[in-house]
Amino acid sequence: MSNFLEEIDKYLDNIMTREERRAFEERVDNDSTLAEELKLQKDMRTVYDDNDWIEGDKTALKNDEAKQLRNFFASDEAKSLKASITEVMDNNRLNSGNKRFYFLGIAASIIVLMTISIFVFSESDYNDLYADNIALEEIPSMITRGEEENELINNAQTLFENKKYREASDVFSKYHNSDVDTIDPLSYIYKGVAHLELNEFDKALGQFGLLEQTHTLQSKKADWYRAMVYLKQEEKEKLRQILLQITSDSTNYNFERAKALLEDI
């Protein structure tokens, strides 16, 4: 085992000659124990790397789950865990044979469990927080009975309440492009939330931007609905910043709810 580790270190440090590398790689192809140890050493070097902890698969790092994982690895909690693992590993580097392999296995297992917990539990937590805070039933009604000119609004809200968000968004667009003298600011909330429910985050933010520009009582809700976008996106830092903005003034819309959410994330 000790010879394995010395050879693996040389291989990973790229200090073997071309002939030595070729011979070593042939041994890896034919020796499952050596191949397993090489993979484990590569994984653990990724853990130790202070510059880029998980820069393994570049394509995998582009999706939303990987973003969440990178954000976690940048957190104080992850750094503390990493330091603890590194300390254990450093204390056992001088030991040889199966004991060192044993500790490597423990450390690698911790990383695997940590990754699984992030993907499973953290994602579930964010989904639950979004469901608890979006409060669709609290959006004031736009429906006005008996006024023919409000037919588009009535149809759009009915579609929204039936969770037909794509159709509702289309009808709200017709309303916004109609000849009404003044756009009801609530329509920007409804259309923005429809986009949010469809995971069309940029379009949702666009509607909440228009809401803010109305400078009405409803416009004060724009920051809260932006927070809902970041919550559903699991953009923790952006979410935290806008919640801090909301909680900076007790007169802001959903001040108390923002305080509670800030504590939960």
Rank of each mutant, 00 (worst) to 15 (best):
E7R: 05
E7P: 01
I8Y: 03
I8D: 02
I8S: 03
I8T: 05
D9I: 05
D9V: 04
K10E: 09
K10R: 15
K10A: 12
K10Q: 10
Y11C: 03
Y11V: 01
L12S: 01
D13S: 08
N14F: 08
N14T: 05
I15E: 04
I15W: 01
M16H: 06
M16L: 15
M16V: 04
M16K: 10
M16R: 07
T17H: 05
R18P: 00
R18D: 11
E19C: 00
E19P: 00
E19H: 08
E20P: 06
E20F: 08
R22T: 13
R22I: 12
R22G: 00
R22K: 15
A23W: 00
A23L: 15
A23Q: 15
F24M: 09
F24A: 07
F24D: 03
E26Q: 11
E26Y: 08
E26L: 13
E26C: 00
R27Q: 11
R27D: 04
R27T: 08
V28G: 04
V28W: 06
V28I: 15
V28H: 07
D29H: 04
D29R: 15
N30G: 09
N30Y: 04
N30E: 09
S32W: 12
S32P: 11
T33D: 14
L34R: 05
L34I: 08
L34P: 03
A35F: 09
E36T: 13
E36P: 00
E36M: 11
E37H: 13
E37P: 01
E37V: 12
L38M: 03
K39A: 13
K39V: 14
K39I: 13
L40S: 06
Q41M: 12
Q41L: 01
Q41H: 08
K42Q: 13
D43W: 06
D43V: 09
R45F: 04
T46L: 14
